[in-house]
Design a protein around this nucleic acid. Structure first.
Length: 428
RNA sequence: GGAGAGGUGGCUGAGUGGUCUAAAGCGCGGGUUUGCUAAACCCGUGACCGGGAAACUGGUCCGCAGGUUCGAAUCCUGUCCUCUCCGCCA
């Protein structure tokens, strides 16, 4: 969330930013409530001060009569304090709700508007879209013919949106994980395998809403746990409530987790096969930085994503996401959209990675701070997240782009050491 | 799952109802001494919310949430977490 003081002092800019992002937020009400909060805080402080004074006097009372009189005085003061505190708490609670509803500020260079036409294509990957001398198949057909993918089996045991990977698809999943991991290890990331569940408190701190009709999150009954939608949640939550020394920053982590998404309200959108599923595996990058490091870290994350997909010889374009399409915590977001020849009538781009600079928006909620060198006090770190590889969509791009006329799929050179062979199929 | 012990500032750790305004040490900042570095010594040093131009100052915080009391780090209840032992288990 944004700093309350910042919101109050920059109410007009914050309100304008909300409009650009298409978020309804009552900034004026928050400003008024903050004035009330300040006044009420003064009253509570004053009552507390007097009550403390009385308590000390009782300790030094000369006789029983004085003690009793002071006790009554103290009791009355505490009652008043409790009442004053209750109204302060009510004000704070309402401020908190409003404050949480306000999205992060936006990067001044991020394109305005919303929707595909508003976002800006920054560049394309090294690999051009393939030219097929045969009608290319989509990954569902390829997956069935090569016995890689069992959507019916997934539906039987868990419902629509679940799947079994089979045979070489299993090896491909593991190969992709290790391929991404090795590149990140070489770049100094600390690798982790994170929990697939997290406390709702952590989900909220990172910016996910565990319950409600539009939620993307599966929650576990009779517990305060939810299945994570991304390792961003667990990696960000990892350092909640900590104060870091400036020399430790930036901290670069990567995490492998399963990701679970309800995809509520997503029905009807292009979602054949593996594109929009309830569960997939993802290797996620995450960084904690000082404020002056975060912009270059975002570029770095984007560059790493490009290297990963260039290495897989998958065509893609890099998108600077329009302000109206940013999620609440993101200050700026770059997406990689891979070319998927089997998607739509004649191929379409589909999102395969996403990297965001969340500045101090998540850190404030999670209370992750650092001590700036040579300054007193603490400041919030900046957090960034980025997809190294989301396996399900990676598989789509890989199968569809590298399919051959004989029905086989070529494995790009960079992946062969991990996959163990140069092709999948054709079936004998 | 059962029994026991514990959770205190950036870290270690003392503190069992009122001078806790939280000891001490480490670390950190400044200074003195000093070829440099280091050591030694001296001084300072928590976070959060307010007030004030500033000096300074009010309040809150001892895992978290409640409760008892005029007063709670300290007593009570719940909860989360950690450790030890037992049970179960891949």
């Amino acid at each position: 969330m944004l700093d309350r003081k910042f919101i109050v002092e920059n109410a007009a800019a914050v309100q304008e930013n909300c409009q650009r992002r298409g978020v309804k937020a009552d900034v004026d009400r928050l400003v008024r409530l903050d004035a009330q909060r300040r006044e009420q805080q003064g009253e509570v402080d004053e009552l507390n001060r007097r009550a403390n004074e009385v308590s000390k006097l009782i300790g030094k009372a000369k006789d029983a009569a004085e003690r009793e009189a002071r006790k009554n005085e103290g009791r009355e003061l505490r009652e008043k304090t409790a009442a004053a505190q209750a109204s302060l708490d009510a004000i704070l609670a309402e401020i908190d709700v409003l404050q949480r509803g306000i999205p992060n500020m936006s990067h001044p260079q991020a394109p305005l508007g919303s929707g595909d036409e508003a976002s800006l294509e920054l560049r394309r990957g090294k690999t051009p879209p393939p030219q097929f001398d045969f009608p290319p198949l989509d990954h569902v057909t390829l997956g069935e013919r090569l016995d890689l993918l069992d959507l019916e089996g997934g539906a039987k045991v868990a419902g629509h949106g679940f799947y079994f990977l089979r045979n070489d698809a299993v090896l491909l999943e593991l190969a992709l994980q290790r391929y991404a991991l090795d590149l990140l290890l070489a770049e100094g990331f600390t690798p982790t395998i994170t929990p697939d569940l997290a406390r709702n408190e952590i989900l909220q701190g990172v910016g996910y809403i565990p319950r409600g009709p539009e939620t993307q999150i599966y929650s576990v009954a009779d517990s305060d746990l939810s299945l994570v939608a991304t390792a961003e949640i667990t990696l960000g939550g990892l350092l909640a409530e900590t104060i870091l020394e400036a020399e430790r920053l930036p901290i670069k982590l990567c995490g492998i987790s399963h990701c679970y998404r309800t995809e509520a309200g997503a029905h009807g959108r292009a979602s054949r096969g593996l594109y929009r599923v309830h569960q997939f595996t993802k290797v996620e990058m995450f960084a904690f930085t000082t404020p002056d490091q975060s912009e270059s870290m975002l570029d770095y994350f984007c560059e790493l994503e490009c290297r990963l997909f260039d290495g897989l010889e998958i065509p893609y374009r890099v998108i600077d996401t329009a302000v109206g399409d940013l999620g609440g915590p993101a200050y700026r977001k770059f997406d990689l959209e891979a070319w998927m020849p089997g998607r739509g009538a004649a191929g379409e781009f589909g999102e395969v990675t996403s990297t965001s600079n969340c500045t101090d928006y998540q850190a404030r909620r999670l209370s992750i701070r650092y001590r700036p060198k040579g300054e007193k006090g603490t400041a919030f770190v900046h957090t960034l997240n980025g997809t190294a590889i989301a396996i399900s969509r990676g598989l789509i791009a890989l199968l569809e782009n590298h399919q051959q006329s004989d029905g086989s799929v070529r494995i790009p050179a960079a992946l062969r050491p991990y996959f163990g062979k140069g092709a999948i199929g054709p079936r004998a």
